[in-house]
Amino acid sequence: MKSNRDTVSFTFNGKPLTGYRGEPIAAALLAAGIRTLRKHEESGNPRGLYCAIGHCMECRLSVQGKGIVRSCLTPLEDGMTVLEGQQLANEITGRKLP
């Protein structure tokens, strides 16, 4: 059992939260009731955790100093600044939306 786990502080989209050191960022966010981890780059549709073991890339978000990471595999550290994945401008994606 994972007893005696340290509690650490981090922020998600500027909102202060706490979680356990070393647990995946996605687990800490789910425990805090946060399901939307990312907006689809083209459509902007909300996306959340899907496979939880690094296969699907759906939970990717941005961690200051690390860039875009899979939040289901990235351990939570004290003081992390986490931002949800953003919809990109159409000039960047270059694709016409229906």
């Binding site: 399901r35 689809h40 996306r47 959340g48 955790l49 899907y50 496979c51 939880a52 073991i53 699907c56």
Partner: peptide, 14 residues
């Protein structure tokens, strides 16, 4: 694709 829909394995891992 809605947040909250996951694979059964993800529910197990979480």
């Amino acid at each position: 694709t809605l947040p909250g829909v996951m694979s059964i394995g993800a529910a197990q891992v979480m």
